[in-house]
Simulated scan of single mutants.
Amino acid sequence: MLYPKPVPLPTFAPSILNSGYAYRDSIGAAGQGQTVLAFLTGRYRHSDAETWAARLAAGEVTLDGQISDGTERLRQGQTLIWQRPPWQEEPAPLGFDVLYEDESLLAVSKPSGLPTLPGGGFLEHTLLTQVRKRYPEATPLHRLGRGTSGLVLCSRTREAASGVLRGWREHEVQKTYRALASGRSPEDSYRISTPIGPVPHPVLGSVYAASATGKPSLSVARVLERREDSTLFEVDIHTGRPHQIRIHLASIGLPLVGDPLYGPDGLPLPYLPGLPGDLGYWLHSARLGLAHPVTGAWLELSAPAPVLLQSRRESS
């Protein structure tokens, strides 16, 4: 069933105390011989060794079911679990609009500010949790950044998930975004093939950014409208690298308006770079075209853009 275009009215939920979460690691060859404390400090870089020592002292970490004091030497095949106590999650807009549904697929419009999946301090304030309250079987098939709004496609059956993911791997799914970039673009269109890979970051250790040793990436950006000090783009992505549009537009000297992470070279800002989940930029997943994984019929899905990402002609 295809639904009419909704009017986005995101509702912000206040901060909540969630139910906690168990982070589970199966020790591989790289962890062999490390102490539990050293492994956790290297694995979860958001916390320093002193913080991990306090968690170990509080009995939050078990190794093969036994409480760990952090000094044990790890062996390959062991199971390490950090039982994180309940924590306060930030406020987030929890409303979403249903754009399309049938027995196999569900398409929803995610508001900016709501993470797609758990991570970065969010567990229950996520699109996954909110969608499953109404559609318990649904699973997002791709991830939008927390600050990115728009269309997210979910599967409702294993068959549908397998079919869509196969189409993604074979580059048969068409993905189009809206993006507001800083500065007035001198060209009408760009074919951007800047490789994307991990680069150093002072807080996280590394983040994805423009990198000569990164993976091949391709975006095609077209100017929709030039404004006084910004440019509204429509962008087709032909690969699915992390933060691809943010990095690619920044790499040609046109970073997204308000992007707290990427500068004009497609690298993290040299002064107080932000984190990948920080808000402030303007990016919207606008359209998705794909062959239906069950019927084979071509399916065109769209999510209306926020007013700031509409051209004057569209918003008049």
Rank of each mutant, 00 (worst) to 15 (best):
D25M: 07
T79N: 04
P86I: 03
S104Q: 09
L17F: 14
G33E: 06
A92N: 04
T41H: 11
A57Y: 08
R73P: 07
L80S: 00
P14S: 03
D102S: 12
P91Y: 02
S47T: 11
Y44M: 00
V98P: 03
R84W: 04
L106K: 05
L56S: 10
A54E: 11
A92K: 14
P85D: 06
A54M: 08
R43V: 00
D97L: 03
D102I: 07
V98C: 13
P86V: 01
S47C: 13
P86R: 06
P14N: 11
Y100I: 10
G113S: 01
Q78C: 02
E72Q: 12
L37E: 09
G33M: 09
F96M: 05
L114M: 02
G120D: 00
L74H: 13
G77W: 02
F39E: 00
A58M: 12
A53F: 08
W87L: 10
A54F: 11
D69T: 04
F39Q: 03
L80R: 07
P111K: 12
R45M: 00
G113C: 07
L80E: 02
Q88I: 08
D48N: 02
R84C: 06
Q32R: 14
G119Y: 04
L94A: 04
R55D: 01
G31K: 06
S47F: 15
G70A: 03
Y21I: 14
L105Q: 08
W52T: 00
L17C: 14
D102H: 09
R43M: 03
R45P: 00
A58Y: 12
A107T: 04
P111D: 11
W82M: 00
F39L: 01
E103H: 10
D102C: 11
L40W: 01
E50Q: 15
F96Q: 04
Y44A: 00
R45T: 01
G20R: 02
A58C: 09
R73C: 10
P93N: 10
S112R: 09
R75D: 08
Q66S: 13
A22G: 08
S19C: 12
P93W: 07
I27S: 06
I67N: 13
K110R: 03
K110I: 06
P91M: 07
S47N: 09
S15Y: 12
A92S: 01
R84M: 10
G113T: 11
L80W: 07
W52E: 01
I81Q: 04
P111L: 05
R43I: 01
A22Y: 07
D25N: 13
A29L: 06
G20N: 09
T116W: 08
E103M: 07
S15T: 13
Q34K: 11
A38M: 06
R43F: 00
T62P: 05
T62N: 14
A92F: 06
A107W: 08
